[in-house]
Design a protein around this nucleic acid. Structure first.
Lengths: 151, 151
DNA sequence: TGTATTTGGTACGATATCGCACTATATAGT
DNA sequence: ACTATATAGTGCGATATCGTACCAAATACA
C-alpha cells in the first residue's frame, strides 16, 4: 500500500464524495416536493450565517455559478420561503431574506433528519467524530485556498 | 459550543460537501469539453474496481438512479470511451468495457490533476491525511449501512 | 467629468439528473 | 409448466445546473 502519495488525497476526496452523495439523498427524501438540497442549503445558510445576503454572496458560499443561484432563489421565492428585497447600498443588487415559512421549512427539515442523525450517533462514536472534524475542516480550508490560488 | 450532538455530524457532512464541491470543480476544469465528473467517475471505477460491470452495478456504486447511469454511459459511448456488450449471463443485461481511448482519457485526466494534488500535499501534511482517511472511511461505511437500513 | 472597466444580476440555450412508466427477461411459488 | 413477481434497461417529460451573452449600476482613472 502506498505511503502518502497522491492516492491518499484522492481517496480522502472520494470518501468525502460518497458521504456527500448519501447525505444528499437522505436530506432530499425528507424535503417537500419540489424542494431539493440546494434549496435547503441556502435557507440553512441564511439562518446560520447571514440572513439578508446577496445572491452573489450565496453563489460564492456554495461555489456555484451565479446563474445557478438565481435559479435556486427563484424556486425558493416561488415557494414563499425567501423574499428578495432591493439592496439599499447598491442598486444593481438584492438581498435575500427568510420568510417565516422559510424558517419553518428549515425547522421541519431538521426535525425530520433528527432520527437519522441519532442513528448515526449510535453507530459512530461522538468523540471520534469530534476528533475528525477539525482535521477535515482544515483540509477543507487548504483545498478552498487552493481554489483561489489555482482555479 | 455543543458537545457531540447532532450538530457535530451536520458539520462533518458539511465539510465533506464543500470538499466534494471544490474537488469536482477542479476535476471538471481539467476534462475535455463535453465530459464531466460523472464520466470520469465511471471510467475510474471501471479501471480500478470492475471493468465489465453492468450499468446497474455502476448505478449502485455511485448511488444514482439507473436512468442517470444510462445517460452517462450513452455520453461515454458517444465519445468512444466505453463499449457496451451484451451480458452473456443475462439477456436483459449489458456489460461496460473500457476502450483504449477510455484508458487514455483517465490517464490524461489524472496527469492533469497531478500538479493540483502535489500542491495539496505541500499544504497539508501527508501523515495527517493518512490519519484522517481510515476514520472518514469508517464514518462513510456507517452512513452507507444506514442507507441500506433506513432509506 | 467623461470614458473604460468591473461588478451584480438575468435571459436563454445546452446538457445533466431524475421520477415514472414501460418492455423484456429472469426467478419464485405453486 | 404456469403464473406472479422481481430485475435490467430504456423512453420520455420535468426540472437543475451551467456557460455565454447581455444590461445596468458602480468604480477606476485619465
Amino acid at each position: 500500500m502506498p505511503d502518502h502519495p497522491p492516492d491518499l488525497f484522492f481517496r480522502l476526496i472520494t470518501e468525502a464524495g460518497i458521504i456527500t452523495q448519501i447525505a444528499t439523498t437522505f436530506l432530499e427524501a425528507r424535503l417537500p416536493d419540489g424542494l431539493l438540497a440546494s434549496h435547503f442549503g441556502v435557507v440553512n445558510h441564511l439562518t446560520r450565517v447571514n440572513d439578508g445576503a446577496t445572491p452573489l454572496q450565496l453563489a460564492r458560499a456554495f461555489q456555484v455559478p451565479k446563474t445557478t443561484m438565481t435559479h435556486t432563489l427563484a424556486g425558493l421565492e416561488k415557494h414563499g420561503l425567501v423574499e428578495m428585497r432591493p439592496n439599499p447600498d447598491d442598486k444593481r443588487s438584492k438581498q435575500v431574506w427568510l420568510t417565516p415559512a422559510g424558517q419553518a421549512f428549515r425547522a421541519e427539515a431538521i426535525a425530520r433528519l433528527a432520527p437519522v442523525i441519532e442513528e448515526v450517533a449510535k453507530r459512530f462514536d461522538g468523540d471520534r467524530a469530534a476528533a475528525i472534524l477539525p482535521e477535515l475542516a482544515e483540509f477543507r480550508a487548504v483545498v478552498d485556498d487552493l481554489r483561489n490560488d489555482m482555479t
